[in-house]
Amino acid sequence: MSAARRRAAVALWKGLDDASGERRSVLGAALTRISLGLVCLSFYVLHYGDRWRLYGPDSVWSWENFQGALEDAGGFSLYEIAASDAWFTFVFHAGMLVTLLFILGWRTRLVVPLQWVFTWSLFQRNPVLLDGGDNLLVIVLAYMMAVDCGARLSLDAGRRRGAPAGDGAGSRAVTLLHNAGLLAIITQVCVLYLASALYKTQGELWQNGTALYYIMRVQDFTLPGVSEMIYRNPLFVTAGTYGTVLFQLAFPFLLLNRWTRLLALAGAIAMHAGIALLMGLMTFSWVMVTVELPLLGDRRLEAIGAWLRPRAQALRSRMPLPAGVRSA
């Protein structure tokens, strides 16, 4: 064997050892789990009073539309099993319970697939309410099934701490799956940005730098009093239009280097904060940033947590809260 081939074999072997020997970003994955869970919960809680009109058997998205669209797409929905009030009530509340368990991190190996099933089912029941953020959310939930997202910040964490660690082939396969799942999530985000940028570069209004003017002027995406100042200003409009395309094109390549990765994340946070504030697309931005969070890496997340903890405690001790809350 030549020296070059031996070196390649060693590198390959080391890569395999890394990928199967250490679960990356378990803290980041746990944060993603909690954060996505909160978005799912908002579908149940914020719409609780409207649940019959939005998702019930007699919803504005009629049963005929629901079944027809489902049949065309070729998917399933738990809500389709029966058009009865009792079944709807059961599935809706079961979905809410599963979401709570998902956020708390209880038996994640079981609950994450359930969470995907219930969320997918709910989204099919009324697609009119959805946006791109929800589209990404349900895809990421599918990849989360591979990810060990219950190792931290979870009810499982305590139970797992005492258990004997496996280091056989099974444990290595699970670790490989975990790392592949995380990589899948971030690859999906890269494809999203690239596709979005490519479509934009084909549009006349994106080319001549005025697209942002039209979008910000639409009443659904306007922040009264602020948007107008921005969309009437040539500098803001042009910079915003080109900046968006440039960022989306650059994002995947910025991830290749450890330091530019932080730049990619900062750019994403800035862009999505802008979209959330100015265009009112709160959950969309929330999902995007949430999904990119594991890119920070657990060491940085730990550092941020360590920085936050004493400050949060100081803040809490200064606030006049009932004793029970303070001790919690």
């Binding site: 250490e22 190996r109 701490r161 004997p164 660690a165 099974g170 444990s171």
Partner: peptide, 11 residues
């Protein structure tokens, strides 16, 4: 053994 009971933050 529990497949998920990896020593946390450990290789």
């Amino acid at each position: 053994p529990d497949l998920d009971a990896l020593p946390l933050m450990n290789r």
